[in-house]
Design a protein around this nucleic acid. Structure first.
Length: 258
DNA sequence: TGGCATGTTGGCGA
DNA sequence: CTCGCCAACATGCC
């Protein structure tokens, strides 16, 4: 389950491989979760040059020269497989073949990964966008919901998942179970800064470790949401508890506002 | 060995 | 109406 920093790296690497290439063929192998038919995808995209690949929230976007955009959501277990690697792609959802005889498959054993033609953004702002600032956060946190659920709510902030929500809240010194509307302005300011720094730093770490990453995820550098670690960098025992149906990693160092 | 891990959606109940 | 929780989706991994 790649998260935002992984997707950021995938996007860059996919651009490297395929930007400027013409899409020869798009083939739907498992269309169960797709809103668009294979015919519609072919009509909109085949024969058109791929302009660029970028990330938006937890999606990748393939922007074509005719202004059509193919959105890709990998969900929990989706993977990208290049054709010039091994070719036994099980559980394929869709395949894209480009003009240089190369291409990639989107696979998912659970069948949940999906592509969508010209997706519309949810109302939330992207986690790395400049719209996500202290002021936006202050308004978004006018709710009784616990802070971790707000950070993961894609209608409020797009791109933060379970693992990075824990990392961000530890770095900001805020308990994940804090009531959002009880967090003081100073902490919100800190949180706005930390969201960016944690995500950007993670991308740097991934690029350093796996510069060509296009599938899977790198997360052994996570300091809190990491089952191999017993203590935070400052020596506090890492605790776990369920929240929002997910396992939450945190420590007593984080201040609880309620 | 089998419990755990991941995101989204939609339904339920407090 | 708001918020938290749960099931469903279906498999590989340590």
């Amino acid at each position: 389950m790649p998260e935002l920093p992984d997707l950021q790296v995938f996007g860059k690497n996919l651009s490297k491989h395929f930007a400027g290439k013409k899409l020869e063929q798009i083939k739907v192998v498992n269309g169960a979760k797709l809103k668009d038919s294979q015919a519609a995808l072919k009509k909109s995209l085949e024969g058109v040059k791929l302009h660029s690949v970028y990330r938006s929230g937890k999606e990748l976007r393939f922007e074509f020269d005719n202004d059509n955009i193919l959105g890709l959501h990998l969900m929990l277990h989706g993977e990208l497989k290049l054709f010039d690697e091994k070719n036994d792609h099980k559980n394929t959802i869709v395949e894209l073949l480009f003009s240089n005889d190369k291409g990639f498959a989107v696979t998912d054993w659970q069948g949940l990964a999906n592509v969508k033609l010209n997706p519309t953004d949810k109302q939330g702002v992207d986690a790395l966008s400049k719209e996500l600032d202290q002021q936006y956060l202050e308004e978004a946190l006018q709710t009784k919901a616990i802070i971790k659920n707000v950070l993961m709510d894609q209608d409020i902030i797009r791109g933060i998942g379970n693992a990075y929500a824990d990392e961000i809240l530890w770095e900001a010194g805020i308990s994940p179970f804090s009531k959002s509307n009880k967090i003081p302005a100073g902490k919100i300011k800190e949180l706005a800064r930390v969201i960016k720094s944690v995500l950007q730093d993670a991308e740097k770490q991934i690029l350093k470790k796996k510069p060509d990453l296009i599938s899977g995820e790198v997360r052994d550098f996570l300091v809190i949401h990491n089952s191999k670690k017993k203590e935070s960098p400052t020596g506090s025992p890492i605790l776990t508890k369920m929240a929002g149906g997910r396992k939450t990693y945190y420590t007593e160092e984080q201040q609880l506002f309620e």
